[in-house]
Amino acid sequence: MTTLVYLLPVALFLGGLGLSGFLWALRSGQYEDLDGAAERILIDRDDEPER
């Protein structure tokens, strides 16, 4: 019974963390171009002018 005192808040806190993480991602526009995000990982980001 006493373990519940820790476990319940911990469970709710973790759940809440996930939820707020999702809402943050949503607000910062990370779900706006899902197809593009999938393709962009293929782009090389080295800034050297010529190879």
Partner: peptide
């Protein structure tokens, strides 16, 4: 700058 959106 230019930004491409592939979904749209």
């Amino acid at each position: 700058g230019a930004r491409v959106s592939l979904s749209t």
